[in-house]
Computed example of a mutant assay.
Amino acid sequence: MNKTKSLYHGHRFPAVVISCAVRWYFRFSLSLRDIEELLLERGVVVTYETIRCWCDKFGAGFARCARAVRRKPGRTWHLDEMFVTLRGEPYLLWRAVDEHGAELDALVQKRRDKAAAKRFFQRVLRSNPVPRKIVTDQLRSYPAAKADIPELVKVKHVFVKAAARVNNRAENIHQPTRRRERQMCGFRDARRTQAFLSCFGPIRQHFALPRHRMNAECHLSILKERLSTWYGLTVPAAADQVS
């Protein structure tokens, strides 16, 4: 009988160390060298290039786990796009969030036209149910693309003025990306930027709790629960160490 190989097969470091390093990278504004130093302080000697390989290999899978355990997404989509500069070239980062501020998806594209908006709609629909309402700014690409997608034809579409900052659900969700972009001295390659942001959003939001809405005891309790869930998904044997 063939046994399924462990996800960490062939790695000389324990799974809990790999899981911790990947979580730190996507959760906090830390560089790979910062994480190398933090692990060294804990007696783990590993190079930053190895940590980069861990993030590339395990990041997407960990992000899927974080996305799978979050609550069911809301039925209102807030869509917005922001400019990012990659090697001197302007790109658009398209992002969709629900009414609770949970990120649904993000996509880096070169253009801001109907085809780009349609591609983004289709991507979000692959992993989320059809919404009841869509909220966007007045970019004309949105209604043109929406009309070409059968699932969205009858969905209510609300337009807001970007200058009025009514669409704050979508605008505010860009802030962590902007902070991380500055910390990383800018993004560079479109493919790697897409891979990073696809992991960064779900993993960061799994731990980023609305601290201003809860007292210290509640915050600590929920954070411990999230950590236990994280290690239970990424390192099943380590779940008991956190709880």
Rank of each mutant, 00 (worst) to 15 (best):
A237Y: 07
D240I: 14
W94H: 03
R165K: 14
A237I: 06
A144R: 00
Q138H: 12
A190H: 01
L223C: 14
T229W: 07
R178L: 10
V135N: 01
H219A: 13
S243V: 11
V160D: 08
K3S: 13
H206M: 10
L38F: 08
I134E: 00
F58M: 02
L125C: 06
G186P: 01
T76M: 14
K156Q: 13
V45N: 12
R95A: 08
C218V: 14
I203S: 01
H11S: 15
E217W: 15
P131S: 12
V242Q: 05
T76C: 13
K5F: 15
L197R: 00
E36Y: 08
R188F: 10
V22H: 01
E217P: 11
D56Q: 07
S228R: 10
R123N: 05
F207C: 04
A96R: 00
K57F: 08
V158N: 13
A170N: 03
K146W: 05
R188E: 14
A66I: 02
S228P: 07
D189T: 05
N215C: 15
K224Q: 14
I134G: 00
L125H: 04
I18S: 02
S141R: 01
L7T: 13
L233E: 05
A68T: 06
Y25L: 09
K161C: 12
I203K: 00
A102E: 12
P176F: 05
A15Y: 08
I134M: 07
P129R: 05
A144L: 04
D105T: 02
D80K: 03
H157V: 13
F120L: 02
V16P: 08
K133W: 07
Q109K: 02
F83T: 12
I149T: 08
P129T: 03
E103K: 05
G88T: 12
P90I: 09
Q194Y: 06
N128S: 07
V160W: 06
N172P: 10
S127E: 10
K57T: 08
E41H: 07
R188I: 10
A162H: 10
R27G: 02
R178D: 08
F62V: 02
T85L: 09
L227W: 11
G61N: 06
L39E: 02
Q175V: 12
E217Y: 15
L93W: 00
E181S: 07
Y8R: 09
L32D: 07
N172I: 09
V84W: 03
V130L: 11
L32P: 05
A216S: 14
A145P: 02
V44C: 11
H212C: 15
D56A: 06
T4K: 14
L39D: 01
A63H: 00
V84N: 03
S19R: 04
H157F: 12
C53D: 14
W77G: 04
G43I: 12
K57I: 06
S6T: 13
L30V: 07
A239S: 14
C218A: 13
I134L: 09
R67Q: 09
N167A: 10
F187I: 03
R52V: 15
